[in-house]
Design a protein around this nucleic acid. Sequence first.
DNA 1: TCTGGGGTCCTAGGACCC
DNA 2: TCTGGGGTCCTAGGACCC
Length: 434
Amino acid sequence: MNNNSSTNTSQIYALLDCNNFYVSCERVFAPELNNIPIMVLSNNDGCVIARSNEVKALGVKMAEPAFKCRDLVRKHNIQVFSANFPLYADLSARVMKTLRKFTPEIEIYSIDEAFLSFSNLHISDYQAYSQKIRQTILRWTGLPVSIGIASTKTLTKAANEIAKKDPSLNGVLDFTRLLDKEVDDYLERIPVRDIWGVGRQYSKKLEAIGIYTAKNLKHADSKYMRKKMTVLGERCVLELRGERCFDLDTNPQPQKGISTTRTFGGEVTDYQDLEEAIASFTATASEKLRNQNSLANIVIVFVRTNRFKGGYYSNSYHIRLPKATSSTILLTKYALLALRNIFKKGYRYKQSGVLLSGIEPEVQKQTSIFKSDKSNGKAKTLMNTIDAINRKWGRGQVKLLSEGIRKPWLYQRTRVSKRYTTDWGELLIVSCNP
DNA sequence: TCTGGGGTCCTAGGACCC
DNA sequence: TCTGGGGTCCTAGGACCC
């Protein structure tokens, strides 16, 4: 991140965003669903987390509880899917790999978005180049994308926003070849709420002082915005004006916190069931930890009853470990100890989770001359072996007994599509009729 | 009946140190 | 008992992102 030193040299950035990503992933394997309304639900079939354009047009909001749109689903015959994250992650990886053929400078921003730099490519027509990227990704993965081009990241987001919605733009909008006045005309079309960095709370504040659009914000006083919305607000204004505050981050650092949390399908009252849940979440979280070659110093466990019901109980407990580790066995031991401290009998638990924090890189430690660290080495080999088996044969093939065999508390996913690309047993079958 | 899950950054305030 | 200022580190809470 950079707030002033590099604003002199101009840069060309692009933001690529997959349209309605999860919905588009489902359509790749079910093309008969093109042009008909479909949506994807979160874990436990709780909330709407992706909507096709047809569903958006019906007024279904992002993160809306699924039960609230049941009538619409029936009335308009909306096709509903449970989230199939392994499938989406795999298609995402294919998109990102394709992008690397077009520029080495990529920041993978989320599962369906990437910032690119066009600065050092020696091309003159960014618009044509972006159309080539779109067509290639569509051909190689089946996924439609939109691209916004500008001199700052915040502006690429804004350009992308317009490109996605305005059919006349054919999925690409390049601010760098427009006049200031023309850019302002586009920014006027974007509600301030939709600007990167402006959320619900800030947009309320901004509207109260007469700032309704991206154009309004761009021409607001940046120091005043710093007072209203911290330094991020100031940067937002500057970026809208084309002054670069955020550089491309092509070298992502390991995550600083890792968590696995779930809302249960039903309600859990039994201590042992909760133990199984916590053990299973810890296993998942520590596998993520090992995948980024890190160790954790702190384990946090939380439990919660249904927050929409009376008699609410919520508590968390954190334990600092005597020594940083990534061992599922050790982390589970402490997680269960933490659970013991907050479990209260008589409550109906609806949600719980495990958070790993105090994360540090795993460096090859010099073992003591006097006492070789044999036990540690063994534990590490065991964990590596378990990870390898689970990678090859599927998650959860090998696990600790504490994770339990039956999982009555596990979430429900009633309408999950097949793992077309990540499971040998569920590959798409193509038949050719003579 | 039914309401997701995984992250990041910034700031204020307290504890502690010299 | 009175009385100071400046720095660092940590944490909780609140905002944001997808």
